[in-house]
């Protein structure tokens, strides 16, 4: 599996420079518009990176090449889920660091502290999106890639106003913060969804002709 993850980075090397660029653009746009939903920068960055990685794998029917090497389909799927986790974690941390730096460098912006809730939300939302995206990718591959990516771009764009409305309503109705038990329950749900998604993607990919 490590070789497959390594492969992803070699294959994406030429476009890796774009990822920090996307990150900075997303950050500038969200910081200037809506600080409460800033954590979505992590979701956008992680997901864009994942889409670049899946795109590289189907561009020239490369799954048909990969499967001729000493590996099986389960490893191919597992490695993609592992890289998705990696992108999610790195993007969430980068998002936190960038926000904190901007907050200290530009106190005039009056940015509130980046909360643990926002950090966890960025990871949770990314994992939910990955859990829906990857089975679709392994089911439809090249034929459906353009449609899937388009649909997910719309979802990502729609996330920002949705999050803003959600945050606004929570404040207005004085819902307050979610308790630890709820966070744990939601977290467990996301993890279970992610695991179920992996098994489903593996099942779909196993039956497929490449």
């Amino acid at each position: 599996m490590l070789n497959l993850i390594r492969k992803d980075f070699i294959v994406m090397r030429s476009s890796l420079g774009l990822i920090p660029l996307y990150f900075v653009i997303f950050s500038i746009v969200l910081i200037s518009n809506t600080m409460s939903a800033y954590f979505l920068v992590a979701v956008y960055t992680a997901f864009t990176t994942l889409m670049m990685s899946t795109g590289a794998d189907v561009k020239n029917d490369n799954h048909a090449f990969l499967i001729t090497m000493p590996m099986n389909r389960a490893q191919m799927v597992k490695s993609k889920y592992a890289t998705a986790l990696l992108y999610t974690g790195v993007a969430a941390i980068a998002c936190y660091i960038f926000y904190t730096i901007v907050r200290y460098v530009k106190p005039s912006l009056g940015m509130p502290a980046y909360s643990m809730g926002q950090f966890l939300a960025s990871i949770g939302i990314s994992l939910v999106l990955v859990s829906i995206y990857l089975p679709l990718f392994y089911w439809l591959s090249k034929k459906g890639m353009a449609i899937i990516n388009m649909a997910f771009m719309i979802i990502l764009i729609g996330l920002t106003p949705f999050m803003n409305i959600g945050t606004y309503l929570m404040h207005k109705q004085n819902v307050g913060s979610i308790n630890n038990a709820s966070v744990a329950l939601i977290g467990l749900g996301v993890v279970l969804l992610f695991i179920a998604s992996y098994f489903f993607a593996k099942y779909l990919f196993n039956r497929k002709d490449l």
Binding site: N60, D61, N62
Partner: peptide
């Protein structure tokens, strides 16, 4: 049938 990564 060449399925290598074309850009590499």
């Amino acid at each position: 049938d060449c399925f290598y990564y074309e850009h590499l």
